[in-house]
């Protein structure tokens, strides 16, 4: 049987969910027997492949770039997992929604700047007006809350998905866990 093709992506999150993924430790080998990591911040492929079976999405949708990426990822993914609280609820990144994009940029690039204060327009992607959970933008197939979801939770969910079953998420994790 051909190996399942797995991807992980990192939008507006702290990378904690990816660290938790690495915490699978030797269980990564068990996953590698059944699946191949075809795209991830942890490996060196530059473009998102055409056909991916399972994509774990860490982080909320906060910038134009996040929005562009997640739409492309959705179009090329069979099972999309909102991976961790930032992806599921927008979590800490969403706290800027209380004050608005302008206030945040003003604070970061003017009030805290010591040299040549300005809002960058090159290289850094423009922020969206609101930080949004992934399912607010594209269809999500599995929600895996947790901040970050534990390695045990990730492993249990992946085992189920690779076997073609839906994981029983509330038995594994919750918001904030």
């Amino acid at each position: 049987m051909a190996k399942a093709r797995i991807a992980t992506v990192w939008l507006d999150g702290c990378s904690g969910c990816h660290m938790s993924f690495l915490d699978l430790d030797e269980r990564l080998l068990a996953v590698a027997e059944q699946a191949e990591l075809v795209y991830s911040p942890l490996v060196d492929f530059k473009t998102f492949p055409d056909e991916v079976d399972v994509t774990l999405v860490e982080g909320a949708v906060a910038s134009e770039e996040d929005l562009h990426k997640i739409k492309k990822i959705r179009a090329h993914t069979k099972t999309l997992i909102a991976f961790g609280d930032c992806a599921v609820t927008a979590n800490v990144p969403s706290m800027r929604n209380l004050v608005g994009k302008k206030a945040v940029l003003q604070h970061a690039y003017f009030e805290l700047a010591t040299l040549d204060p300005q809002i960058p327009t090159l290289v850094v992607p423009p922020l969206l007006d609101r930080v949004r959970p992934v399912h607010d933008v594209v269809k999500v197939d599995v929600f895996l809350p947790g901040c970050p979801p534990s390695a045990d939770t990730i492993f249990a969910a992946l085992v189920e998905l690779l076997a073609g079953r839906m994981p029983d998420v509330p038995a594994l994790t919750r918001f904030g866990k």
Binding site: A82, M95, H135, P170
Partner: peptide
């Protein structure tokens, strides 16, 4: 604004517990 991960009651909250118990995952 419920940001469980930075809340004083994370892990000791009836709302959060009921969400999990009732299968609210988003």
């Amino acid at each position: 604004n419920h940001i469980c991960s930075v809340c004083v009651s994370n892990g000791h909250c009836e709302l959060q517990w009921l969400a999990q118990k009732l299968g609210v995952d988003h």
